[in-house]
Amino acid sequence: MTLRVCAVGKIKEKFFKEALSEYGKRLFKYCKLEMIEVADEKTREGASSLEEQMVLDKEGKRLMEKIPERSFVIALAIKGKEMDSPELAKNMEKLFLEGKSDITFVIGGSLGLSEELYQRADLLLSFSRMTFPHQLMRVILLEQIYRSFRINSGEPYHK
């Protein structure tokens, strides 16, 4: 099974890189994990809504190019469905049982996701109505994926 995280922007901070590396090692026994970064667009202060839309479209196109056609797409979005950890685990297990062995999680940039990505997504997932830096969101996402595998394997996890 392949899990892919496609995200806008590069991870620059050492502590985020170390956390992602640690969760990558932990997930190795459960799945093949791919971490894909696409370039972010600079958005000038006070950009118009048209300029912001152009940024979203450019970043969205870059992300779309990295998503395999057969992949089940879970887009992280504030307006998505909120789940607790056991619910996420149950949903992932259901996907695997349905034969969906290629799953792509998508994390947008500072402006969010393009309309094209919202349309492509099979599931919109919200971790909160709060806004998180996309670098931190990658760490949170990997931790929750790892937790889901632990739950589904009947292994202990922190509650």
Results as ranks from 00 to 15, higher is better:
Phe105Asp: 01
Leu117Gln: 05
Lys17Pro: 02
Glu93Ile: 00
Val5Ala: 06
Leu76Lys: 07
Val8Arg: 05
His134Tyr: 11
Lys12Ala: 11
Ser48Trp: 08
Lys79Pro: 00
Ala47Arg: 09
Leu123Cys: 07
Gln53Glu: 14
Ser114Glu: 01
Gly112Phe: 08
Ala47Asp: 11
Leu76Gly: 08
Lys10Tyr: 12
Glu37Arg: 03
Gly9Val: 14
Lys12His: 15
Leu33Pro: 10
Glu45Thr: 12
Ile67Gly: 07
Met35Asp: 09
Pro156Lys: 13
Tyr118Thr: 00
Met64Ser: 13
Glu59Ala: 01
Glu143Asn: 13
Ser49Pro: 12
Ile151Met: 11
Gly108Lys: 02
Leu3Tyr: 13
Ser48Asp: 06
Leu63Ser: 08
Glu87Leu: 08
Ser110Ile: 09
Ile140Pro: 00
Ala89Leu: 04
Lys58Met: 10
Phe132Gly: 03
Lys17Ala: 15
Met130Asn: 07
Ile74Cys: 03
Lys61Tyr: 09
Ser148Ile: 12
Lys90Pro: 00
Glu37Tyr: 02
Ile36Gly: 05
Arg44Thr: 10
Arg138Lys: 09
Glu115Tyr: 08
Leu20Trp: 11
Arg44Ala: 11
Gly80Ser: 01
Phe105Tyr: 10
His158Gly: 14
Leu113Trp: 02
Ala7His: 07
Glu18Gln: 15
Tyr23Lys: 11
Glu34Lys: 12
Arg129Val: 08
Glu59Thr: 01
Gly9Gln: 11
Phe132Met: 07
Lys90Val: 00
Ile78Trp: 02
Thr43Val: 15
Glu13Lys: 15
Phe28Val: 09
Gly80Tyr: 02
Lys61Pro: 00
Leu142Glu: 03
Gly154Asp: 13
Val55Gln: 06
Leu33Asp: 03
Leu56Gln: 07
Glu65Arg: 12
Lys94Tyr: 09
Asp122His: 11
Arg150Cys: 13
Ile36Thr: 12
Ser85Trp: 05
Glu98Leu: 06
Arg26Val: 07
Val106Met: 04
Leu3Arg: 10
Leu76Ala: 05
Val106Ser: 01
Ala47Ser: 14
Ala89Asn: 02
Leu76Glu: 09
Gly108Gln: 04
Glu143Gly: 12
Ala19Tyr: 13
Lys66Phe: 01
Arg129Gln: 13
Met137Val: 10
Arg138Cys: 10
Lys12Arg: 15
Gly46Arg: 09
Thr104Val: 12
Ser71Asp: 15
Glu59Arg: 03
Glu37Ser: 09
Glu143Phe: 13
Arg147Phe: 14
Leu124Phe: 03
Asn91Cys: 02
Asp40His: 10
Phe96Asn: 00
Glu37Val: 07
Asp122Tyr: 02
Val106Ala: 10
Asn91Ser: 12
Met54Thr: 12
Pro156Glu: 14
Ile145Arg: 10
Arg129Lys: 14
Asp122Phe: 04
Arg26Asp: 09
Leu76Gln: 06
Phe15Ala: 11
Lys90Tyr: 10
Gly99Ala: 03
Tyr118Leu: 10
Phe105His: 06
Glu115Trp: 03
Tyr157Thr: 13
Met137Ile: 08
Ser153Tyr: 13
Gly60Trp: 06
Leu136Gly: 06
Ala89Met: 02
Thr43Lys: 00
Lys66Gln: 14
Val139Lys: 01
Asn91His: 12
Glu116Cys: 03
His158Leu: 14
